[in-house]
């Protein structure tokens, strides 16, 4: 299985994913990243903060090629996206 890395871009800072996860294909990697974002945002909501809402996941392959950028906000259900 290919390995995918989910770096987190926050303004100018990148929180690296040094390890990555093995998943069957890019669709699975995207779905896994979206679930991950929802988990992070759920905790932010519980804590009453919105500082993670501008972050993005930069999904790369093993060679470091950027496959996809997923803004955190895109992982929200549609009616919540306009809230920021």
């Amino acid at each position: 299985m290919p390995r995918y890395y989910r770096h987190i871009q926050r303004n100018d800072v990148v929180l690296h994913d040094p390890e990555g996860v093995d998943l069957p294909d890019i669709e699975a990697a995207r779905a896994e990243a979206v679930q991950g974002i929802r988990d992070v945002l759920a905790e932010a909501v519980r804590q009453g903060t919105d500082d993670a809402f501008d972050d993005s996941i930069v999904l790369t392959d093993e060679a470091g090629r950027v496959l996809m950028i997923i803004p955190f906000i895109e992982a929200l259900p549609p009616r919540l996206r306009g809230a920021t």
Binding site: I8, L15, H16, E19, E32, Q35, G36, D39, V40
Partner: peptide, 21 residues
């Protein structure tokens, strides 16, 4: 691994990595 920590602590792997970072 991130996946193990994720399954041990009820977090997604993205959340585990973000928290460790």
């Amino acid at each position: 691994t991130q996946a193990d920590l994720s399954d041990a602590f009820g977090l997604s792997t993205v959340h585990v990595n973000r928290t460790l970072q």
